[in-house]
């Protein structure tokens, strides 16, 4: 059995950060085998004469294990137990096809090995035996497993890149506001590039909560105009409109965000107490809203400004504890570390 695992190309021993988990989650059940089962023990010098070979080398009936491998592989695939006789080209093409769509240009000319059945001499040559067919299929599948592994690696990279960009956007906005208010507390800390230092990344275009169902066009329009003003640094008018939005649509879609930005604008305006109240309202009135981790973080910042470091740390720790995956958590952690 161990040799079959080897042929399927599952990975053992070596750990591959999150990519590995992604692969082991589905594709090949063989991956779940304990590493010791699949590979020879860590290399010791001296027995280099011995070389691990395929199981087929030991079994005169090589096709049997091949069939086993294929059955195993087919079973694990989306198709369920595919008959072994099924045309390889078709089955591989089917499996390969869905992965092509969502994989962007990073995936480029995904060579599906189906194209390789090269020059055959029609008619004349005797047809390939079942063993030959199985071996051919096995090779293609092994190739395909590796190709899919590559696709996973590339998607993983894209996800990480997107997450990083989002984080940087967040920091960029945060810093910009802080800079304009003359405050430095909310800046991203050392090593974080400011958004306007040669970066070509798109600016923040909208609050994440926009575009949800149930909004009224006027509400959305009001929010967007306030948001744009804020981006144009017209803080006073922006604050007025955020306040109006809250007055007119207290239960509206954008109320939590409006409270949040009001808090932010108060803070810039040198009124940490008013800012504190706004942030508290976000947390208390809309505990499930996606602005809560940000508001909690900002409470930590505001309490720092109010010279209450203990309270500040309390809030900062809460962000890290309750929203460990949020961008606010990493900011909070950094800020808390500076306080301690």
């Amino acid at each position: 059995m161990s040799a079959l695992m080897r042929m399927l190309g599952q990975r053992t021993g070596e750990r591959s950060s999150s990519i590995n988990e992604a692969t082991s989650a589905g594709a090949v059940p063989a991956k779940r085998t304990a590493p010791t089962d699949a590979l020879p023990a860590p290399v010791k010098q001296g027995n280099d004469r011995q070389r691990v070979r395929l199981a087929g080398a030991r079994s005169p009936h090589g096709w049997r294990w091949l069939a086993g491998v294929l059955a195993l592989y087919s079973f694990s695939s989306v198709h369920g137990a595919a008959p072994v006789e099924e045309s390889v080209a078709e089955s591989v093409a089917e499996k390969a096809a869905p992965s092509r769509g969502p994989v962007s240009e990073g995936q480029r000319n995904a060579t599906i090995p189906v194209t390789s059945p090269a020059p055959t001499t029609p008619g004349a040559a005797p047809s390939t035996s079942q063993l030959g067919q199985l071996f051919y299929q096995l090779q293609l599948l092994r190739d395909e497993v590796q190709r899919l592994n590559g696709v996973i690696e590339e998607q993983q990279n894209q996800i990480e890149r997107l997450a990083r960009e989002q984080h940087e956007r967040y920091l960029g906005l945060d810093r910009r506001i802080a800079e304009l208010s003359g405050g430095t507390i909310a800046s991203g800390g050392p090593g974080v590039p400011a958004v306007n230092t040669g970066s070509v990344r798109p600016e923040v275009i909208a609050d994440p909560s926009s575009g949800q169902p149930g909004e009224t066009p006027t509400e959305r329009g009001t929010y967007e105009s306030a948001y744009e003003m804020m981006q144009r640094h017209e803080y006073e008018s922006a604050a007025e409109i955020f306040q109006r939005l809250i007055d007119e649509y207290p239960n509206g879609q954008y109320a939590p965000s409006a409270f949040y930005w009001l808090g932010e604008l108060h803070r810039k305006n040198g009124d940490p107490e008013a800012a504190r109240q706004s942030f508290v309202l976000v947390v208390d009135l809309y505990p499930d809203h996606n602005k809560v981790p940000d508001a909690l973080y900002k409470l930590g910042v505001v309490y720092t400004q109010l010279d209450e470091p203990d309270r500040a740390i309390e809030y900062l720790d809460r962000v890290v504890r309750e929203y460990p995956d949020s961008t606010a958590a990493s900011l909070a952690q950094q800020h808390a570390a500076e306080l301690r």
């Binding site: 950060s17 690696e153 990279n157």
Partner: peptide, 27 residues
Amino acid sequence: SDRGGRPQIYRIDLTNSMVERLTFEGD
């Protein structure tokens, strides 16, 4: 390594065997 179907550059940490892919442009 061609573990992703095509040769690409990876980095392995010898202390914990963590592997990370470094190149994503081109095949």
